[in-house]
Design a protein around this nucleic acid. Structure first.
Lengths: 200, 200
DNA sequence: CCGCAAATGTGCAGAGACTGCAAGATCAGC
DNA sequence: GCTGATCTTGCAGTCTCTGCACATTTGCGG
């Protein structure tokens, strides 16, 4: 690992900016927050803010991008022989031990729901981990990176995870997210066969 | 149909703005184009531009949003008993007869690839038709709109269509997009079972 | 230690994005 | 035609975002 003082400092600044942006936006609403305020809260100049993020919106969803990167690394670390959908289930269970990070996550997700201008940025974060997942799958299966199979699998899986996360955040009783992920993965594995049990 | 003069005029203005934004961005690059130029090309004031779109980016992908809406309407019009994946295949074949619109589509897709700031907007357009599809599925299956099945199916299908479109646009020999869609839908229907034929 | 090269942080100036407001122009229905 | 509703426009002003020059800090070899 080449984690010099320089890189650690940069990462700290980036996280401080992201956290400040999120907190201010949650408290006052995104439109009421200026870059100047975010920079001040993170103790840097406004100009420096733009060295890290190209917009307020990007800073607010920065934690999402990190989460997506984290998920990609965990997926890459799973045993190569494991079926893809099984890896996804396992990784989601791994990622859910951290209560404080979950609380911040929920706050951010609710903010995105109330601020439409954040939706595109949120989706872009998912797209990043989708690319990561596709690359992992291509390597694992020995297929070409331009092949349809890894790309479709990655896209479908990330879409399913996104739906599971959204539904979980919207439900009042926060059961286990991993269980919801299990259910959406089951649906994928079943080939989206039409109409499951009509429900009681 | 309540298509008064007013509404038709508004639609014409919206399309003119979208087309002007796209053409100017393709010609000069998105960063070099100002809202003032777009407005002038569409023969309205700059202030009016912002009555239709909240940013340059949104205007450039306006055609995508329309396409997505079109797809939603076509899907809703399919026979209610038809399996979902079959409806998707059929709709994609329906939508591909129009050569001139396809050419504009390709130009726009290439622009999105070269301008990263358009990616989030592009994804947001897909998200809109995903919601539409989920609503259609919920109604068709009689399930609740908050149920996982319609949401996951819609998300997976739209993700697959997006991958198919992207791959098709990136390939040099533009075969039949509908064929590519067929292949990705096959993958979905097969439950993303691991590693198809390793390929020659 | 010391000094150099590279990477970062900052201030400044300026173009452009975007918004609220109020007034003028246009359309729909009576 | 008259009238209310809707759409367009200009204007003023704030904020976003960028390029550039300069100061500061870090990494590294001497």
């Amino acid at each position: 690992m080449t984690t010099g003082l320089r890189e650690r400092k940069k990462l700290r600044t980036r996280r401080a900016l992201g956290a400040a942006a999120l907190e201010l936006a949650v408290t006052h609403g995104l439109a009421e927050v200026t870059v100047e305020q975010i920079a001040e809260a993170a103790d840097v100049s406004p100009r420096t803010f733009f060295n890290y993020f190209s917009s307020k919106e990007e800073a607010v969803v920065a934690a999402d991008v990190e989460r997506a990167r984290d998920m990609g690394e965990r997926l890459a670390a799973r045993p190569a022989g494991e079926p893809v959908l099984a890896s996804v289930r396992a990784v989601m269970r791994e990622m859910l031990g951290d209560a404080p990070r979950s609380r911040e996550w929920i706050a951010q997700a609710r903010l995105v729901r109330s601020e439409p201008s954040l939706v595109p940025q949120q989706l872009a974060a998912y797209a990043a981990s989708e690319r990561r997942l596709a690359a992992i799958l291509a390597e694992r299966t020995g297929l070409d990176a331009t092949d349809l199979y890894p790309a479709v699998t990655a896209a479908a899986v990330m879409a399913a995870v996104r739906v599971a996360t959204t539904r979980w955040l919207e439900s009042d009783e926060h059961g286990d997210l991993a269980d919801v992920v299990d259910r959406v993965v089951d649906l994928l594995a079943a080939g989206l066969r039409d109409a499951p049990s009509p429900g009681p």
